[in-house]
């Protein structure tokens, strides 16, 4: 069973009288455990495709299947449930909840999943230590640097060991060292848990870690190649 299957997916944005094709008849199949980079210039459709796969946005036409479930027809609650239990998100902007501490942000998804308090704290502290934030567990996002916030967001995305991680420009706000550490963490998770990674990026350093590069231009897939990861 494929991790992701897109069949003829189109997404049209209306700006006044103009129509912009964010995705134009995209078909794509990603197997479980693949490490895929969606590469496109700005406005090329990579984030739109990522949002559609993650159930954050609905396509205007086509079908999207995630882990054997067709998600483009699911209701809001069912989609939320699917995201909660199957997908970890890492956004370009750090997207942490400002009133929660680093630990509470990491625990957030587990809390929605109903994980016990002891288990949550144990796993959150372990993952924060793994991303290099030991000692900062009780800090709120406003008291952390951009890189630290992004690592909290990554920790939140992977702490519940989702089957798939969707990351939108995860290294955009990180220095090269932090970006390298983050990618190595992704790769380790990919290998250890067979987690599927789909990363939207135009950062060549990120692409070098991927086993498959899908290039988009004007909402269409123009190239889909497999490569030896770094």
């Amino acid at each position: 069973m494929s991790a992701v299957r897109c069949i003829g997916v189109s997404r049209i944005f209306r700006q006044g009288e103009h129509e912009v094709r964010g995705l134009d008849n995209v078909s794509l199949e990603i197997e479980k455990g693949e490490f895929v980079c969606l590469v496109a210039p700005s406005g090329g459709g990579k984030t739109t495709l990522l949002n559609a796969i993650g159930g954050l946005d609905r396509p205007d036409s086509g079908e999207i299947w995630v882990a054997g479930t067709r998600i483009d027809t699911l209701g809001k609650s069912a989609l939320a449930e699917m995201r909660l239990n199957h997908i970890g998100f890492v956004f370009q902007a750090y997207n942490l909840i400002p009133v929660l501490t680093a630990r509470e942000n990491v625990e957030f998804v587990m809390q929605l999943q109903g994980v016990s308090a002891d288990e949550r704290q144990h796993r959150a502290d372990a993952i924060l230590a793994e991303v290099g934030l030991k000692g900062l567990e009780d800090r709120r996002p406003a008291k952390m640097s951009g890189g630290q916030q992004q690592r909290v967001a990554v920790a939140r995305a992977i702490v519940s060991e989702p089957a798939m991680v969707l990351a939108d420009e995860p290294t955009a706000n990180l220095d090269s060292h932090a970006a390298e550490q983050l990618m190595e963490l992704f790769v380790a998770l990919n290998k250890k848990h067979d987690t599927t990674f789909i990363i939207a990026t135009h950062d060549p350093r990120v692409m070098s870690y991927a086993g498959r590069i899908v290039r988009l231009l004007d909402g269409r897939i123009v190239e889909d190649v497999r490569q030896e990861a770094a």
Binding site: A80, E81, L84, F89, F91, N95
Partner: peptide, 8 residues
Amino acid sequence: LMLALGMR
């Protein structure tokens, strides 16, 4: 963000 993370 909370909706994206799976809050119903």
